[in-house]
């Protein structure tokens, strides 16, 4: 991965990530999130994680964001009307976020391995899906089954929540 492409996709991800938070209109936020996820998926592929990059596009940019846009359409949300902003609370929240970022960056600076480049792979990982599937169904079979139960419970919960209460 050339440094130019890395910084291109990293800045794409970060700029649209900032747009999600800063945009007053929820529809614009959702579309910025799609663009941010596409940049992130390119970053995954630059790390030779092709399977993760593909499901990032399929699950997030495809399914999850359609769900978000569908709900925004259903509730007919418009841009937030101007409210009186509690500046003290906003400054406090921003301050906590900046402190968190500084702390994580200090940890990364003192982390020795962070200064190393990525070691080369023995062969191109074209069998990426095969390898992950092998690990998923051999070593992580029980967590995989549990995830299936979790998705079933979530489906039943959503149906129950969105059912209208009989009067």
């Amino acid at each position: 991965m050339s440094p130019f492409l890395f910084w291109l996709f990293a800045s794409l991800t970060l700029i649209f990530g900032a747009a999600v938070v800063l945009n007053p209109n929820p529809v614009a936020s959702a579309l910025s999130l799609v663009a941010s996820f596409l940049g992130l998926s390119a970053l995954f592929m630059s790390l030779d994680a092709f399977f993760i990059g593909i499901i990032q596009v399929l699950v997030y940019a495809g399914a999850v964001m359609v769900l978000f846009l569908f709900i925004i359409m259903l509730l007919d949300l418009r841009a937030e009307e101007r409210r009186r902003i509690n500046w003290l609370a906003a400054a406090g929240g921003f301050g906590v976020a900046v402190i968190l970022l500084v702390q994580i960056c200090v940890v990364i600076v003192h982390f020795q391995a962070a200064k190393q480049t990525f070691p080369p792979l023995a062969r191109p990982t074209s069998a990426d899906v095969w390898n992950i599937g092998q690990l998923l169904f051999m070593n992580y079979n029980l967590p995989f089954q549990v995830i299936g139960v979790l998705v079933l419970v979530a489906t039943v919960g959503v149906v129950l929540l969105s059912r209208r209460e009989p009067r």
Binding site: V98, I108, V109, T117
Partner: peptide, 16 residues
């Protein structure tokens, strides 16, 4: 590109 570059991008995204 080092590991730290990816970690910094990840940290900024998390903070956002």
């Amino acid at each position: 590109i080092t590991l730290g570059d990816y970690l910094v991008v990840s940290a900024i995204l998390f903070t956002m």
